[in-house]
Design a protein around this nucleic acid. Structure first.
Length: 330
DNA sequence: TAGGCCATCTGGTCCT
DNA sequence: AGGACCAGATGGCCTA
């Protein structure tokens, strides 16, 4: 497999297809580029045609121009300028510059996104939030903090976490709840009766009632940066009452509808406790599907749920080992 | 192997 | 003319 370029940061020079396409038309590693790899096959071959040798170009230009003149006379708009070699070179140089600018622009965008990630309440170096999830979580975070500021939401309440998790994918929800050392928030479409484990009595939201699972280690999802919330801890918390499921969607802002299901109480008292040693086999996989209208959405009950509300010491899915290991190194 | 995520290239549009 | 921004296309990588 020929790579036309490598990503930056890997110690190799970035080579654009346009650069190696020029000259002898061989790829950076010396292979002929004819069939094995064209970065954008159609475009490259088209450009190869445009940038062919001057002799061939002259002949073709003459022939093509005759035909083009016929078409041109029927066509409206400005006549297309002939691509002289000088124009082609200018075009190519401009294109290369534009590509470089676009690259750096996207790098800037990614840097900004990385900055955003770093101030998210959930931060994991290994299980990095995707771009879309970062934006969703950021939006939720702002909403949740706004509610907290207005006094309607305790930062320690489960509702706070639910607000954080609105519209997030199940893996991200797990990450957030893991950081908060909560069980995963139940997803829309998931019936309460599908959740295994003991039925627990309702808890006053915002209270510190805890239903700890015996020996429940904190999942290695990442770290919940409690410093983000410290300044809010002194604020009055309160029941999370007037929160309609779709209020955040009123402005048509992206996040899919979230039907808040009845939420079984879980331990929410530990979001500010020191990080515990995580289990090396956490989390087990969740099944989720997504659709354009509702990306998070369906979670089949798994043994994970059993473990969350009971003991999950015995759950060691071997196929998760790699992910867990990497997170564990975090 | 399919699907998600990502980086990059590219052409179009708008603006200066 | 050239830069910024955008969206579509493409292919690589990773994970379930």
């Amino acid at each position: 497999m020929i790579k036309p370029y490598v990503r930056q940061g890997e110690g190799e020079e970035v080579v654009s297809p346009l650069q190696w396409m020029d000259g002898d038309m061989s790829s950076p590693d010396g292979e002929a580029s004819g069939s094995s790899h064209c970065y954008r096959a159609g475009t490259v071959s088209q450009q190869a045609r445009e940038m062919g040798s001057e002799d061939a170009e002259e002949d073709e230009d003459d022939a093509e121009e005759d035909q083009e003149d016929e078409n041109e006379s029927k066509r409206r708009g400005p006549k297309k300028k002939r691509m002289t070699k000088a124009r082609q070179e200018r075009f190519r140089a401009r294109r290369i510059k534009a590509n470089a600018r676009e690259r750096s622009r996207m790098h800037g965008l990614n840097d900004a996104l990385e900055n955003l990630r770093s101030i998210m309440p959930c931060h994991s170096k290994t299980q990095k939030l995707s771009k879309i999830e970062t934006l969703r979580l950021a939006r939720n975070y702002i909403c949740a903090l706004s509610e907290a500021l207005e006094g309607g939401l305790s930062t320690e309440s489960r509702a706070f976490m639910e607000t954080l998790c609105k519209g997030l994918s199940q893996p991200t929800t797990n990450l957030v709840s893991g950081c908060l050392q909560l069980g995963p928030a139940p997803c829309a479409g998931m019936r309460p009766e599908d959740r295994h484990g003991a039925r627990l009595p309702p808890t006053p939201l915002g209270g510190m009632v805890s239903y700890p699972s015996p020996g429940l280690p904190s999942p290695p999802y990442g770290t919940f940066d409690s410093a983000h919330l410290l300044h809010l801890r002194a604020m009055k918390g309160g029941p999370y009452e007037n929160h309609s499921p779709n209020e955040y969607n009123a402005g048509g802002v992206g996040t899919p509808p979230y039907d808040s299901p009845p939420t079984p109480p879980l331990s929410i008292s530990s979001n500010l406790v020191p990080k515990q040693e995580p289990s090396p086999h956490y989390p087990p996989p969740h099944h989720y599907s997504s659709s354009p209208s509702n990306p998070v959405l369906y979670q089949t009950p798994t043994s994970y749920d059993v473990h969350l509300e009971g003991s999950y010491d015995s759950y060691h899915p071997p196929h998760m080992t790699r992910q867990i290991t990497s997170v564990y190194r975090d």
